[in-house]
Amino acid sequence: MSQLKHDYDDIPGTTVFDADLSRKGYHLNTFFFTLMKQENRDVFKADQTAYMSRFRLTEEQRAAVLARDWNEMIRLGGNIFFMLKLSFSDGMSVQQLAGAMTGMTAQQYAQMLLDGGRSIEGNRSKSEWANG
């Protein structure tokens, strides 16, 4: 890993996709990127495991994709903008994808945004989450 300490590591519930994660997630993100073509989406949907075997994914990464565990994909180097190719292929909106990572139901998450979104108060620092 990088020698640098990151100031952004203190932001709660947030993963900044940096050069370290880019390297870790390279094959995973390459897989997502191929889903921009309809013919690839068709092959993937017909047999997800077989399609993923074309890429040098780790066992953890394959399992996270099959489980649609979006936070786990992020932890394993997935970049949200590449991941959108998978969620769009699944027919999810960006709001549904984002909501799925919060632990809220889709309805609760949508309502939170209708009510003005998640407040910044109490959400600036990991210390606030640890205490709350």
Binding site: P12, G13, N71, I80, V94, A98, M101, G103, G117, R118
Partner: peptide, 12 residues
């Protein structure tokens, strides 16, 4: 913010 447990943050 469209990723992670803090998704949905808005600071008007």
């Amino acid at each position: 913010q469209i990723h992670g447990p803090r998704a949905g943050l808005i600071n008007s």
